[in-house]
Nucleic acid binder design. Structure first.
Lengths: 109, 109
DNA sequence: TTTGGTACTTTGTGATACAAGGTATTAAAA
DNA sequence: TTTTAATACCTTGTATCACAAAGTACCAAA
């Protein structure tokens, strides 16, 4: 019941966020905090409480795996890697994303 | 727990759908069934149970108004129009949408 | 008066972003 | 030794939303 625009932005992020994670992990392994930092850089604001359950979901779906790695500064980090199944899913999401962009273009034309 | 891609597509539509409705109504007034037909044309599959509550929400937010119009075939139709406030919201959603596209492009590059 | 088409509405469910809080590890400061 | 600060991971409760599946109402033709 507050800023409806902010809510709209939040809703638009829904689903796209999952796509972003797969995109990022397709390029290199990463741990949660570094993913958050990367997403902040590109103005995709995400909080921990959103990202951690998302990573767990994707891992449970077999899209990701992880390994623990020591850090020189602070506690160990959980590095996530994309799996073959994750890359397949990413390819399908690429298609879905392009479809949506096309749809919006059609609607606006 | 079935087709995760279909679920992902559905999640991607979330929020974007609200945007689509404003885009369509910015061009011309329409009633629910015609909006559904239009969205099906552009492969944005939407069912009644999704669209009707959405229209009611947007009307309650002051983004839309409606009027009843007789039909030559069948029951009267509820024609929706976008309001000034709706056009403001649409402008902000244009911006949000372009931001997200830019974000994905950055992430994929 | 029944049937079929059109149109609008409601209810229940599952999925998900977010806010707010918590736990655990490490190293440096008090 | 104890405290503090930084880093990193995790959980719980809430609100929102798309969807499936139902229902209600109007109208015209058979």
């Amino acid at each position: 019941m507050e800023n409806i625009t902010e809510n709209a932005r939040s809703q638009m992020r829904k689903g796209v966020l999952e796509y972003c994670i797969l995109c990022l992990l397709a390029k290199e392994d990463a741990y949660a905090s570094s993913l958050i930092a990367r997403l902040k850089e590109v103005n995709m604001i995400v909080v921990e409480g959103t990202l951690y359950p998302l990573l767990i979901r994707q891992k449970n779906q077999g899209l990701l795996t992880y390994r623990w790695e020591e850090s020189t500064q602070g506690p160990p980090r959980k590095y996530y890697s994309i799996t073959d199944k994750g890359r397949e899913q990413l390819a399908q999401m690429d298609e879905a994303w392009n479809d949506i962009i096309t749809t919006i273009e059609k609607i606006k034309s």
